Computed example of a mutant assay.
Amino acid sequence: MKKQRVPKRILGRLELVDFPKFQLWGVEAKVDTGAYTSSIHCSDIQVVTGPDRQPRLRVLLLDPSHPNFDGTVMEFPEFSLRNIKSSNGEMQERYVIQAALRIFGEDFDTEFSLSDRSDMKYPVLLGRRLLRHGHFVVDVARRNMSYRAQVAAKASRS
């Protein structure tokens, strides 16, 4: 039986993405084909004991300098600690969570490593794992393709 080909969608080098479960909308993300795992900026990372006596990861997503920051403390009962290669090639231990990212109006569950990206221009980095899973290709000459597609879809419905 032949495998059905899924049409690929074009992403720009920069995209505006949503995290519906976190109530974060229009967060700037850099598409990085050199990174395997996606990453999101967070601070104040702590492992705490929850009411069920199980470990939970407690973080602040983004930071006060970001327009979408609301100071909400997030807790994740499911997380892992992994070695991730940083942008400078060094291995770092980072916490990894599963999160839903909305792009082109569709939600994709993927892994995000949690790291301090305050010295980076963009708070979110989208890696190859998501790109392959979502059947995306990257055109580095473009930006905000998902956002533009959503605006065009809304306009055509009106």
Rank of each mutant, 00 (worst) to 15 (best):
K3C: 08
V6L: 07
V6S: 07
I10A: 04
L11Q: 06
G12W: 04
E15C: 06
L16V: 03
V17H: 01
F22L: 15
Q23R: 14
Q23T: 09
W25V: 09
A29H: 12
K30R: 15
D32I: 00
G34Y: 00
T37K: 13
S39P: 06
S39Q: 11
C42S: 08
I45V: 15
V47Y: 13
T49I: 10
D52T: 08
D52K: 08
P55E: 02
R58E: 13
R58I: 06
R58A: 15
D63S: 15
D63Y: 10
S65E: 10
S65A: 11
N68P: 01
F69P: 09
F69D: 02
M74A: 09
E75D: 13
F76S: 08
L81T: 05
L81Y: 09
R82E: 15
K85S: 08
N88H: 06
N88C: 04
E90K: 14
M91T: 04
Y95E: 00
V96S: 05
A99V: 06
A100T: 04
L101M: 04
L101I: 13
I103L: 15
I103G: 04
F104A: 07
G105L: 01
D109G: 03
T110D: 12
T110L: 14
S118N: 03
D119Y: 07
K121D: 12
K121L: 14
K121T: 09
Y122V: 04
Y122T: 05
P123L: 00
L131K: 01
R132K: 12
F136D: 02
F136P: 01
F136N: 00
V137L: 15
V137D: 04
V137F: 10
V137M: 15
A141F: 08
R142D: 10
R143K: 12
N144I: 03
Y147H: 13
Q150L: 13
Q150E: 14
A152Q: 15
A152K: 14
A152W: 10
A153M: 11
A153E: 15
K154W: 12
S156E: 15
